[in-house]
């Protein structure tokens, strides 16, 4: 390899494990996840933070990974779709999406599962308007939105204690 940009060493806490990667500091997180760590669950839809396919949790907050450099995520606990099922809420949301058949092509689904998990962990009983607001950064082009709303209700009911 010839002269590329200088690489820096980053330590990223992903799904509970510290991962050390050598990366061009401008690399958006999603390329580190997908190409260096083999975590391909987050999807690249736009690279512009307009569609939500690439969502992850960072310290419990929903974050889009397609444009923000990986270096910005150092020191945060990152949870990807691959790790979301290890959280009680994440597993409930996954089951709810299956129960509601809340996907057609499925390209938006990983991002939505992450976003719904993030929503319900902070707001266990959202109103429909609150759900709509939380999910509006996410696109679904097949029109599975009504089923996603249903999945949110199912997951909220299943985790209601």
């Amino acid at each position: 390899m010839g002269a590329g940009p200088a690489l820096v060493s980053l330590t990223l806490n992903i799904n509970g494990t510290d991962r050390v990667v050598d990366s061009d500091p401008d690399t958006p997180l999603i390329f580190v996840l997908r190409d260096e760590l083999g975590l391909k669950g987050a999807k690249l839809g736009c690279g512009l933070e307009q569609c939500g396919c690439c969502a992850v949790l960072a310290d419990g907050e929903v974050a889009l990974s397609c444009a923000t450099p990986a270096a910005v995520f150092e020191g945060k606990e990152i949870v990807t779709i691959e790790g979301i099922g290890a959280r009680a809420m994440g597993a409930a949301v996954q089951d709810a999406f299956v129960a509601a058949s809340a996907a057609q092509c499925g390209y938006c689904t990983a991002g939505l599962v992450v976003a719904v998990t993030g929503l319900l962990e902070t707001n266990p009983a959202p109103t429909r308007d609150e759900t709509a607001e939380a999910l509006t950064p996410h696109l679904c082009r097949c029109g599975s939105h009504p089923r996603v709303f249903r999945a949110v209700e199912i997951a909220a009911a299943a985790t209601d204690r």
Binding site: F97, S101, A103
Partner: peptide, 15 residues
């Protein structure tokens, strides 16, 4: 169930 749905919600479905 639609084919692949479980894998989709777990991020394992390979597009």
């Amino acid at each position: 169930a639609p084919r692949g749905l479980r894998a989709m919600v777990e991020g394992r479905y390979a597009f």
